[in-house]
Structure formats: C-alpha cells, structure tokens
Design a protein around this nucleic acid. Structure first.
Length: 461
RNA sequence: UCCUCAGUAGCUCAGUUGGUUAGAGCGGGGGACUGUUAAUCCCUAGGUCCGCGGUUCGAGUCCGUGCUGAGGAGCCA
C-alpha cells in the first residue's frame, strides 16, 4: 500500500478504502467507543481526523499515544459523523513509528514565538510555522516560475568572494588560517597570502556585480541565494544570513526596472492567494486581521511611484510631526517611510531618484547632477522590501564616481571591463526574500520566517 | 552599537507596602466520563524565582552588575 499525503487524501471522494497515512500526532482524545487522533504530515494546515474504534487490535497503544509521536494509519476515508470536518479516516490499524517522549515541548495550548525560536528544530510542527514554511516554499517556487516565464537565466553567483569593495555592508571573513597563531609578514601583519585563496576572502553580501557581468551578454538574469551581512543589527527585519533575489536586465531603465518589480511582487502575492488559501486564512485570522484584504488590494491596484523629492515634499506638506524632521538630502527615516507608505499612500510605494550622496557609487547619475537612478520599494508593515537602481554604464562617469569616494578605479578591473567592452544601459534590484515572506504572511519577525535564523549572537541549530 | 522593557514549574502567566511552607491554567502521571474538536471532571508529581554581589532582622519583591531575550533606532534586503 502506498502512502497518501493528507492534503491529497482530503481531495479524494469518500468513501475511499485502503488508505495509508503517515504523520505526526497533534492531539489525542480518548472516548468510550472511539479515540480521536488529529494527524498532520505538513502537507496542509489542519491535518486530518483519525477515528480509532475501541475494539481495534492495539487500542491500548493508541490510548497512550503522546502528542508529537510519528504514526502510520491504515483506514478508510469516510464522511464525518461529527461536526468540524467533512471527512475523517476510520482506522483499521495504527502503528507507532516513533513515540514522542512525555516532555515533548509543543503543547496543545499556544506557546510564544520567542519560546518556539528556542526549539527551531520542532516548531515546523506548529500551525503557524507549518503555514509559514509552506508559504515560503510556494514563494520560492513562484519566483523561479516568474523569471522562467520571462526568459531570464537563473544565475548562481559565488557565495565566497574575494571582493571587499562591494560596499553593501560588513562582511564575514572566510579563512583557513589558524586564528590562534596566524602567519605574519615581516611587518607583523597577518599574511593573507598564506590563506586558502592567497588573499582575504569573505561571504557574499550581494551577487549584483557578478549578475551585471552576466546581464552584459545574457541580457536578463537573476540570482536567488543566501546572502550574508555581519552588521550588528538587532531588529525584527534584519538577519545575518538571508536569501535575496537579484534580477539584472540589460537595455533596461529605472522605469522598466520598477515595472518588473511590481509585476514580480504581484505575481508572488497572486500565487500565494491562489495556492496557499487555507494558510493565508489562518494568518488572516490569527496573526494579522487585515492580511487577505490588503494582499488582494495590492494585487488589484497599481503601486505608487514618486521621486525622493516628491516624497520629501509630501511628508513636509502632510504637517505630520516626526522625531527626526524631513529634509531634502538626508535619508528617509523609518518613521518617514512608514508614514509615507502606510498613511499617505496606503499601498506599496516606489521612491526613486535619491540624492547621489546617500546612495552607492554604481548607481546611474541623473542629468541633474544631484540625484541617481535609485529605487526603493516601501511596503506597509515591512518597510524596505526592494532596493535597486539603474547602473552607471558610462565608463568615465563610473570611474569619476569611484574616485569621488577616494577609491581607485584600478581596483575594479573586471567590473569596469563590462563598461569597456560593449557597455549597455542596465538595471536591477535586490528583493529580501524573508521580507517578502513577512509581507505575504503578516509575520512580524524575520526570525520567524526563516527555518533556522542567524542573528548576532545566535547561531544555534 | 544606542534607548526602553523583561527573565517565577516543561509552556503561558499571577505573586499586594519587603514578612510564615511561592500559586493558577495548560502539559506530564493516575482515575472518571464522553463522536471528541485547545474536550470536560477528580487526584497527583513538578521550582537554583536568570547568575553574582549588596541593603535589611528578613529579598521572587529594593539597589548594583553580568548574562539572555524582546521592542524601538541606526545600517540595509
């Protein structure tokens, strides 16, 4: 007999005999004539109700089943005699595969997210986290489907990089040197020439520069992989290891870049609305009351677009008092971004054309000489979901930008080659995948949307 | 890194102005009842009150400090 996953079993017409289910016990309730098991195998939200008659062989073992135990059930799918479910399984055989010890920490009654983080290896068996990681998986697969449908090449950029000039944040060093006794140069400095790669190496903070190189030849590419930032960030939306999606498109300007970002976000939300209905209903009911309405609204309406200058003006004109005053030339504070996207606009908002002084060197200089072709996508509840730009494709302008930072263009050899040999306008963005999962589920902490989160001072599991 | 708050049973929490032997619900163990739905009812076991130092006749409670966690800020995705 072949195992049937619970989500599939629930789609079968009842009655359906000779069903083999395997999963984990959520609850057991023992009655006089029957015992009830709620069985879950991760394929759906609510699991399935198993009814075990009291005269079944081995009923004593069933009565002593503990929450969390792994079991196999053989039985028949029938219309339910009770309320609360349309079908259930009348068991003919129950086998304990792996009994859960009495101290199994996931109880029927709710535990705090904070506690569940300390048992990250078990929390996927709870309603909230099962739903979160099903949605996460669906979003990942929808990402690949979206880009595949548009002819993008899926590009694997390196995890380990020798480039310390990316400027996107503090980097984790990768080394095989003995840190207790590293080799030294004559000057007493650590001799990185003796290290594995013959020079300092780091974990990537972005695949963008590599993706740009591939866009200058393969036209439309995207990356989707882990990214590492060694920032000492202690917030609900930063992790030291996270997943980022970075499309890069040749012959593309900032406006087309925004078009793609908007299509992409809408495609992701449409997919989870269609494919994760019961999970989203759970989130809507238990985690974030307005979730379904908000997601549907985002799918149905256009995103707002405004320049940084307009954003500053609207924030000032609003008369709203902020802890930090709004002023042209300084970065928007979190309170500004939140007010803009949540109150003034009420849906996702692209803010474009920031002052060059507050953005990265590779962003394309606008004709006004003051701003660059940057874009942030701000969304209610999460903040910055996407950061992107048109890239500076003009060799001389890019070299000037590097020099203005006090850096040497010679250090950017291969990157500048892409401007030297058949350069073309191009643009791209980075989307923080965990922030997307947060936005789609209403979950408020990045540590709760990644299976085993890595944050400062936390590398358990 | 900065600011604020918190840490009491396996989990979620209560614990009065500092005062005898620190409580409840859930979970665990035992039993009753029952087509149940976080089932219900009875009995029961279970505690380094985060660590260290101090004030006091006396500290879960007050003070200092360390650790851990959370929320907010900065950095960003």
């Amino acid at each position: 007999m072949k195992r049937t996953r619970i989500a599939h079993a629930l789609t079968l017409p009842a009655p359906q005999s000779d069903l083999l289910l395997k999963g984990w016990v959520r609850t057991v309730r023992n009655g006089k004539n029957v015992s009830f098991i709620n069985l879950n195998d991760g394929s759906n939200m609510g699991g399935i109700q198993i009814v075990v008659p009291s005269d079944m062989d081995g009923i004593e073992e069933v009565r002593k089943l503990t929450t969390g135990s792994a079991v196999e059930i053989v039985g028949e799918l029938v219309e339910s005699q009770g309320k609360g479910q349309s079908v259930e399984v009348q068991a003919t055989k129950v086998t304990t595969v792996g009994r859960a010890a009495e101290e199994y920490p996931l109880q029927k009654k709710g535990a705090s997210f904070e506690f569940l983080r300390t048992i990250a290896h078990l929390r996927n068996r709870s309603n909230t986290f099962g739903a979160t990681f099903r949605v996460r998986s669906t979003l990942a697969q929808a990402t690949h489907a979206f880009f595949a449908n548009r002819g993008f090449v899926y590009l694997h950029t390196p995890i380990v990089t020798g480039s310390d000039t990316e400027g996107a944040g503090e980097m984790f060093r990768v080394t095989t040197l003995d840190m207790d006794n590293p080799p030294r140069t004559d000057k007493g400095e650590i001799d990185w020439d003796k290290d594995f790669f013959g020079k300092p190496a780091y974990l990537t903070v972005s695949g963008q520069l590599n993706a740009e190189a591939f866009a200058m030849g393969m036209s439309d590419v995207y990356t989707f992989g882990p990214t590492f930032r060694a920032e000492n960030s202690n917030t609900s939306r930063h992790a030291s290891e996270f997943w980022m999606i970075e499309p890069e498109m040749a012959f593309c300007d900032l406006s087309e870049n925004c078009d793609l970002a908007e299509d992409f976000v809408k495609h992701l939300l449409r997919t989870v609305l269609d494919d994760c209905t019961s999970d989203l209903e759970f989130f809507n009911q238990r985690i974030d009351k307005g979730l379904l309405e908000r997601l549907q609204h985002v799918v149905d309406s256009g995103f707002e677009r405004m320049t940084y200058a307009e954003a500053v003006k609207r924030l000032i004109d609003s008369g709203q008092k902020f802890e930090y005053p709004v002023e042209f030339g300084v970065n928007l504070q979190a309170e500004h971004e939140r007010y803009l996207t949540e109150t003034l606009v009420g849906r996702p908002t692209f803010v474009t054309d920031y002052p060059k002084s507050i953005k990265a060197f590779y962003m394309r200089r606008n004709d006004d000489g003051q701003t660059v072709g940057a874009v942030d996508l701000l969304v209610p509840g999460v903040g910055e979901l996407i950061g992107g730009s048109a890239r500076e494709e003009r060799l001389d302008v890019l070299e000037d930008a590097i020099r203005e930072l006090g850096l040497e263009p010679e250090d950017y050899g291969w990157y500048l080659d892409t401007r030297r040999y058949g350069t073309a306008p191009h643009a791209g963005f980075g989307l923080g995948f965990e922030r997307m999962v947060m936005y789609a589920t209403g979950m408020q902490n990045i540590r709760d949307v990644i299976p085993f989160p890595r944050t400062p001072r936390n590398c358990e599991f």
